[in-house]
């Protein structure tokens, strides 16, 4: 479903953010990407939906090459939902309007249809009662759940999560992770950049550990936690699993 082949990405001339990364993710899998900050996790995620333009290599999603000039990138993106660390809800729109914008403008749904679908999604993430509030009136956890609903509104086949709980207060992390666990169990293909190792153990089919723009180690979650092969992974786990 997602094939990443020898992708390299430079920021400017000197900084190589991704260095010959290859990976294959099949439909229905949940893959966790972890690693220290600056290791290239988020950059890799953004290469998958074309938010980042890499200079070398190829990313194929559902048989379509992300950077091919003839690929309709907007259409492709609407099949890939993305959730950001800082939610990125549109502050001038209510929760409901945040969710219905793309279905109305991109998928050409009627306002009524999009509204009904948005309500169903808000119900699914447990905050239907907040539909008409603005992002500024919601807690961080609620905002992130709206953001997940917004990403789901285009009925994506793949969901990308870029540190979805890193900006949340501890007591709000669970409500967001619960929604994500439900999604994974419902068979959604998910790529999640996170340091929530409990979540990883629960749902991940595979874990990828990145360092300096390369995939240093990958494999089953339990094996990775119990017996990391590389020194960098050992150091990293030593720091985050206290």
């Amino acid at each position: 479903m997602i094939v990443i082949e020898h992708v390299s990405l430079w920021y400017g001339k000197d900084f190589k953010a991704l260095d010959d990364v290859s990976e294959t993710i099949s439909a229905g899998q949940t893959v966790i990407i972890c690693g220290a900050s600056g290791s290239g996790k988020s950059s890799l995620l953004r290469c998958i939906n074309g938010l980042e333009r890499f200079q070398e290599g190829k990313v194929m999603v559902d048989g379509l090459s992300v950077q091919h000039p003839r690929t309709n990138i907007q259409k492709l993106r609407s099949r890939i939902g993305m959730v950001f660390q800082h939610f990125e809800l549109y502050p001038h729109m209510t929760a409901l309007e945040n969710i219905t914008l793309a279905p109305i403008r991109v998928a050409r749904k009627t306002k009524a249809d999009a509204g009904r679908q948005a309500e169903a999604l808000l119900d699914r993430v447990g905050i239907l009662d907040q539909a008409h509030k603005y992002p500024g009136e919601l807690s961080g956890g609620q905002q992130q759940r709206v953001a997940i609903a917004r990403a789901l509104a285009m009925e994506p086949k793949i969901m990308l999560f870029d540190e979805p709980t890193s900006a949340l207060d501890p007591e709000m992390i669970k409500e967001v992770l619960d929604v994500m666990v439900d999604l994974a169990e419902a068979g959604m293909t998910m790529i999640v950049v996170t340091h929530e190792m409990g979540f990883a153990k629960k749902v991940a089919d595979e874990i990828i550990f990145m360092d300096n723009g390369t995939i240093v180690e990958k494999g089953a979650v339990h094996a990775f936690f119990k017996n990391p092969q590389t020194e960098r992974a050992q150091q990293f786990l030593g720091r985050i699993l206290i």
């Binding site: 953004r46 939906n49 938010l51 907007q74 259409k75 993106r77 609407s78 890939i80 939902g81 993305m82 950001f84 800082h86 990125e88 809800l89 549109y90 914008l101 793309a102 403008r105 991109v106 998928a107 953001a147 917004r150 990403a151 509104a153 285009m154 990308l160």
Partner: peptide
């Protein structure tokens, strides 16, 4: 914030729609 643009693009909005809405 640029994150707003990324979020809009990620849902499939075109650059023009992103600017407008």
């Amino acid at each position: 914030p640029f994150g707003q643009v990324m979020a809009a693009h990620s849902t499939g909005l075109s650059p023009l729609q992103t600017a407008r809405f």
